[in-house]
Simulated assay, not measured.
Amino acid sequence: MIVAESGGAAQERPEATLEVAVLVASEVVCAGLETLLSRLPAVAGVRVIAPELDGLPERIEPADVLIVAAEQWSLLDGRTDVSGLPSTLILGDDLYERWDGDLSVLPVDGFLSLKELSMQTLDDALKRVTVGEMPIPASLAKRLLTGGRGRAAAPTHGAIPLTSRENQAFLLLADGLSNKQIARCLGISVHGAKRLVGSILLKLGASNRTSAVITGMKSGLL
């Protein structure tokens, strides 16, 4: 930790360790995002990736986190071995409509709202995604929980269709196992386990493991 003095009191500041890659075609949005990222204490470097098809996987690989605009997701979808991608955040404000409310089909680790983007929301998203949580903007979480309706309905077992693999991972998650332990039990990579956990959190409308377990108990999954 780096200790900074502020008003006579010592404050801990995280070391700059994260390498962030940005895949955003809009020059205005990309420049703004790059500026915000460069001001975050935890970010060591920002690399802008041109939205081209050739050489894309190799240019992403060294990053710890990839931020990709919803419009550019198609460059990755179906072309890249998603298990080899870094932790991935999708940036956009029409995500619910774009994927017809089923965001669980996306092999990503979290979401960012362009309208709500700030140093605070960006810093929070990076912190959460690096510890295995799935950052979701409050507005998007509300849409997912209500299914696009104005009033939330109580979750039921039938309303949360986990795959058999997700069910296996969820039981291990509920037992308190880490992503690494889940990967070992299921015979998959740690990154694969992380994406499974992320999909589970997304389907349950949960921002962390604790709330996922609570939702799972209420809905009869546990």
Rank of each mutant, 00 (worst) to 15 (best):
A169W: 01
S139R: 15
M217S: 09
L85M: 06
D93L: 00
S74F: 10
E58T: 06
L186N: 04
I90M: 12
A31N: 12
L222N: 07
V68P: 11
V131F: 03
G110R: 02
P137A: 04
E116M: 09
V22K: 08
P51V: 07
S38N: 13
V43F: 04
L140A: 01
L23D: 14
L126C: 07
A183N: 09
E5R: 14
R98L: 04
V29Q: 13
G32P: 06
G216Q: 01
C30H: 14
V197M: 03
D93G: 01
N179Q: 15
S74P: 02
D54Q: 09
M217C: 07
G110H: 06
I200C: 08
Q181K: 09
I60S: 00
E97C: 02
T35F: 12
D102G: 00
L201T: 02
R151P: 01
P137K: 03
E58M: 08
F111D: 01
G55I: 02
T215M: 13
T156Q: 10
M119Y: 08
S38D: 10
C185M: 09
G92D: 10
G187W: 11
I49A: 05
S178I: 01
D77K: 04
S211G: 00
A193W: 02
K203Q: 11
A159S: 14
S87T: 04
L112G: 05
A69V: 00
P107D: 12
E133G: 00
L95E: 02
A42R: 14
L177T: 11
E116F: 02
S74V: 10
S219K: 10
E12I: 00
L221A: 05
L23I: 14
G132M: 05
L76M: 08
A9G: 08
A31K: 14
S83V: 00
V108L: 08
I90Y: 09
R59W: 00
I136W: 03
L76D: 04
A152M: 08
A153R: 14
K142I: 09
M119D: 15
D81M: 04
C30K: 13
L33A: 06
P86C: 06
W73G: 01
